[in-house]
Design a protein around this nucleic acid. Structure first.
Lengths: 326, 326
DNA sequence: GTGCTTGACGAAATCGATTTCTTGCACTTT
DNA sequence: AAAGTGCAAGAAATCGATTTCGTCAAGCAC
């Protein structure tokens, strides 16, 4: 890899001039040409590490998501990536497994790697954004918020919960349960509140045990569904607060030999790659990609020096009935 | 962020000593303690950028995949990540969209960022590994190989194709078509050859048009399936060479009102999150995660200075019949 | 006691860019 | 003509670590 010094030597100028050529500063036409020719000839690419050390910043955005295998988050990542590319930034995607320790570790890396900013879906309320914050690096929370004063992009989770539940009520179901995520995660908490609001307002039957907490994964959804089916008076429909848990719930229904046409299922999120789902499945589409794109836009604005007051952007989910893209 | 100089000043030693403490060199007990205390007190973390500039290398692995939204590749990424973590390495995940230009761009970034090594699924045969290679950074090709002399981990694609097709034959299907990926990609080429070998050996009926090429995505699979169904004498079964195309094919079947029980479908790959697939769907499990883990292991060995001759590890796919994990 | 080895450790060079000073020259301005 | 202004461009400092080199003292052999 050629260095700026070799280019300078070949072009017969000082290294400073070479740097100026590549950073848009005032250099005479004459020397510009000399430098560019020399650079071309040597196949010179500026060394990012050296530049970063000097400038104390880079063109890399760190994206922290809890589960890279969840299509919701990969779609979100695509949104971030597309937007970042447009501005010449690269994205580093890191998987936290919803583990605060891993999360902290990546945040420290982001800091010591001089990354330009961080977009994250916090694993818990206790995220320590101290290190990043003290460096003055911008942070945008996405999908979930944090107690720290940072910009955020989220979904109107309660409205989504309301929409999903209402759809089930209107489809004629009267004993609607809810499979929510782990207690304490705001995102799922709000969705569950949406459910609660509707079942209360519509005076549908709610029994003890109709609210199940599960981890966000397929197995959690399945276990929760089984628990619901084991109730003395089981529900006739269920709202699941994320996509993977819905899959688990549908699997459990299938195993129990229940015809999905007879059991209402509403999902907050999309069922990825699903073959025609039973027509009673209601999907509330979460704009994952758009969420990512918006977060990236906000982050880039901050990186660019924008100092307007903190913002929280709330995106609305749209309800979709099957057959969706079919 | 505290620097090594501040720590040195506080501990009353030279910066060199501080560095030595954190790099396992000979330092007296006494000063070790002094330095560690000082570091602790200041919350010192070594600046990775400076270190990288000096050492001309980092602890970051670059992983290039063609489609981050394909569960096959996220599983692979998990494998890489898990292994990397064990050795204290971080993984940067980049999406090439099967676009050689994007790929090249990322490879250049990997080079100028002094990343420790690269694991990639090449978008095409024309990948230019020149830049990376000339830096002496190790590269491991995964899932697909390249003409460049690098280590590789792949799947026995032909065997997988054979297994899938054979299963259909044994299930009694006699007009078996194949939906392959884009022509020219070795990975899909081999799988298709497996199909060809079996249909030839078993003398099943093969018509013009029974081999369809498609992009690797859902829409491609659907279009190909529709083309097959439009044939005058359509097939009674199909082998699809990747997971997403299978989804598309199944969608097309559904739209055409064909009962999936009557139409044989075999997939090279797993159908993610699928509700109980029609019992005639044969899935050949591709060990994606393991593929990633193996590639990471090989790369880390090279990074560690291993100079054994080039290796190509071939992993065998295992055939699975539904209901799989259900 | 002299000479030699060994080990701890400080001084200074180094990685490769960016950026601040400075210098020198051309060109106005009065 | 002297002084002031502006601008291109080189010299050198800087970012924060690692590493080479050299010094000094302790330990050991003869």
């Amino acid at each position: 890899m050629a260095t700026i010094y070799e280019v300078a030597a070949l072009a017969g100028v000082s290294p400073a001039t070479v740097s100026r050529v590549f950073n848009g500063n005032t250099v005479s036409e004459e020397k510009q040409r000399l430098v560019r020719d020399a650079a071309q000839q040597l196949g010179f690419t500026p060394n990012k590490t050296a530049r970063r050390l000097r400038k104390q910043s880079s063109e890399i955005i760190c994206l922290l998501v809890p589960d890279i295998e969840n299509p919701f988050f990969t779609a979100l990542a695509r949104g971030v990536e597309d937007r970042a590319q447009e501005s010449g930034f690269s994205v580093v995607l890191c998987n936290t497994d919803d583990d605060p320790a891993k999360e902290l570790r990546y945040l420290q890396i982001a800091a010591s790697e001089h990354m330009a900013g961080v977009i994250l879906s916090p694993a818990s309320d206790e995220v320590d954004l101290g290190a990043i914050a003290s460096l003055g690096r911008p942070v945008v929370a996405v999908d979930r918020t944090t107690p720290y004063p940072v910009d955020a992009v989220k979904i109107d989770n309660r409205a989504a919960g309301i929409a999903a539940t209402t759809a089930l009520v209107e489809a004629g179901f009267r004993r609607i349960a809810c499979i929510a995520g782990p207690a304490g995660i705001e995102e799922t908490e709000d969705r569950y509140l949406g459910w609660k609001q509707v079942v209360t307002a519509r005076k549908t039957l709610v029994r003890d045990g109709f609210l199940q907490h599960a981890n966000f994964r397929v197995d959690g959804g399945r276990a929760a569904m089984n628990a619901l089916l084991d109730l003395v008076q089981p529900p006739d429909a269920v709202v699941t607060t994320n996509n993977l848990m819905a899959i688990g719930a549908l699997q459990a229904l299938h195993e129990a030999g229940i015809d999905p046409e007879d059991f209402g299922v509403a999902v907050l999120g999309e069922l990825p790659y699903l073959l025609p789902p039973p027509s009673s499945v209601v999907q509330v589409r979460l704009p994952a990609r758009h969420l990512g794109r918006t977060a990236a836009t906000m982050l880039l604005e901050r990186i660019g020096g924008d100092t307007q007051p903190l913002r929280t952007v709330v995106l609305r989910a749209e309800i979709a009935r099957p057959p969706l893209s079919l």
